Simulated scan of single mutants.
Amino acid sequence: MVADSVAEAGHMAGRHAARVLRDAVAARGTARVLFASAPSQEQLLEELRTADVPWAQVEAFHVDEYIGIDPQAPQAFGRWLATRLFDHVPVDARLIDPSADPSAEAARYADLLRVGPLDLACLGIGVNGHLAFNEPYHWLVDDTVAVREIVLDELSRQQQVDDDCFASLDEVPTSALTVTVPQLLSAATVVVTATGAHKAAAIAGALDPGVKASVPASALQMHDDATLYLDPAAASTPATAEAGSR
């Protein structure tokens, strides 16, 4: 779905997410949701902060976290989500601990995710087509592990600098824990928000028919209830987007 602006794309996605959470609580008494942490999610989270959602019945997770970062650092994804949503609503937020042993933490978080069904995943798409931190060629469509330790692609790390999260590439951590693609797509509904001309090539790759190892986001094609919310720049062809960004 192509919105008129970046803000409208995010708010539309937020309204969609709120409906899913309300419906899950109405049907089952609880809801479980995964959140991505990225600038593309700002308006979605803003919408959710004031939405009519029974947050006390919602259990929230995040999709990835840097290994070794201070949990209170503003770049830590759990902290980023807390400042934008978790600190403002009475949600049960289950965060990845970046200071823990990575193998043990991956296993702990996988166990938490698998306690029950996931109703919703709110995701973005990276400039290299990553989904969470599942990097090109380093993900499995049939992965049996729910959370993995991964080495970050340099493009993913550079994106963090370009998004003004870090001052230089040297400051960006080189590894992270990520929820794997099959676990992400186990959510009953997937709401994806991607904006900006710099995402156009990744969006085109994700939508080009066929699941491709080079574009993890192409796995979204396998989901029966996945909706993409884009602004015009992200929805344009890569050549058009490149010209428009000059």
Rank of each mutant, 00 (worst) to 15 (best):
M1I: 11
E8M: 02
A9I: 03
H11M: 05
H16T: 07
R19W: 05
R22A: 11
R22S: 09
T30R: 07
T30Q: 13
V33C: 05
L34P: 01
A36L: 01
S37Q: 03
Q41W: 04
L44M: 08
L44G: 01
E59D: 08
E59N: 10
A60T: 09
F61W: 03
F61G: 01
I69C: 05
A76D: 00
D87E: 12
D87G: 10
H88D: 03
H88W: 06
D92C: 11
R94L: 10
R94V: 15
L95R: 11
D97I: 13
A100C: 11
Y109E: 06
D111Q: 15
L123G: 05
I125H: 09
L131H: 04
A132N: 04
N134A: 04
Y137K: 06
H138E: 03
D142F: 00
D143Y: 10
V147R: 07
V151C: 11
V151Q: 13
L155R: 14
Q158F: 13
E171A: 15
L177E: 08
T178S: 15
V179W: 07
V181H: 05
P182A: 07
T189R: 14
V191K: 11
K199Q: 05
A200K: 12
A200Q: 09
A202Q: 08
D208T: 15
P209C: 13
V211Y: 03
K212P: 02
K212L: 09
A213F: 05
A219D: 00
A219H: 03
D225P: 00
D225L: 04
L230E: 00
P232W: 01
P232H: 00
A233C: 04
A239I: 11
T240A: 10
E242M: 11
R246G: 13
